[in-house]
């Protein structure tokens, strides 16, 4: 008996409101993520996976519109949240990790300062407690010199460290769900393995769920509990990872499996 779902997307349709074309990027997409699960959203470029991730946090660019569907988080309808409610939600309940850590951080502020912003907004800790928490978080993500990293500017760190710092920032306010958009695509292969291991550990320690958006089936097989295969804005196949890998039914899934061999 599986517990209630954490995030539920039903029949989501997102369209592009351009003058000439009325394209739909996501068409009737449905998925559910359960607590303490890593769910992967897999597809090629243009399949709509990043768009879906952004839609959950209502971070879509103005040209895109959610025309249909429901997004429920912990049973509550998110599409009807006010802007203020969404702000409360972002970071505290649902956090996001992006593909390119260099652009996710503001280059003129130190890492520690930016992480502190999250804590100031969402938690009620005093200055000392905040500083300690930042060091704890950096330590949790496997950074060996948290003090030095907290004092550094984004460009002074290597790609792997930046990605870890971004993850640390994401878990700062103890969210229930992290949406990770291609978190390892820009990293070297050895770093990729480390970050994936980190995600696994965080899921266990912090009771997190992760919505992993990726095009790399290899990452998915070693990390995800559930898979949702996306093609042209629709979910064409879904289910527990092992089951899908053993017997892929849809043609697209089979093609993806081919590349992995």
């Amino acid at each position: 008996m599986r517990p209630e779902s954490l995030l539920e997307i039903k029949n989501l349709t997102i369209g592009l409101s351009e003058e000439a074309e009325n394209k739909t990027i996501v068409q009737g997409l449905s998925l559910s993520i359960f607590p303490k699960t890593i769910a992967a959203l897999v597809g090629g470029s243009g399949s709509g996976k990043t768009t879906t991730g952004l839609a959950v946090l209502r971070l879509l660019p103005p040209v895109m519109d959610i025309t249909q569907g429901e997004i429920t988080f912990q049973g509550k309808d998110m599409l009807n949240y006010s802007i203020e409610q969404m702000r409360q939600l972002r970071g505290k309940e649902i956090a996001m990790v992006f593909q390119e850590p260099l652009y996710a951080f503001n280059p003129v502020f130190r890492i520690g300062q930016q992480m502190e912003e999250v804590l100031i907004y969402h938690c009620s800790l005093n200055k000392q407690q905040r500083e300690q928490r930042i060091l704890d978080l950096l330590d949790m993500v496997g950074i060996t010199e948290p003090q030095r990293v907290a004092q550094s500017y984004p460009h002074q760190l290597s790609g792997g460290m930046r990605q870890r710092a971004m993850i640390a920032q994401a878990i700062a306010a103890e969210p229930q769900l992290i949406i990770a958009d291609e978190p390892t695509s820009n990293l070297d292969v050895t770093l990729q393995a480390h970050i994936m291991d980190l995600f696994r550990k965080l899921k266990e320690r912090l009771n997190l769920s992760i919505l992993l958006i990726t095009h790399d089936l290899g990452v998915v097989t070693h990390l995800a509990d559930d898979i949702f295969v996306l093609s042209e804005g629709r979910v064409v196949e879904s289910g527990p990872t092992q089951m899908i890998l053993a017997k892929p039914q849809h043609r697209f899934t089979q093609e993806l499996m081919e590349t992995f061999r």
Partner: peptide, 13 residues
């Protein structure tokens, strides 16, 4: 060996 472990089996060394 480290490279291959990471790339093929996604094992962090």
């Amino acid at each position: 060996q480290e490279l291959f472990a990471a790339a093929i089996h996604y094992q962090p060394v």
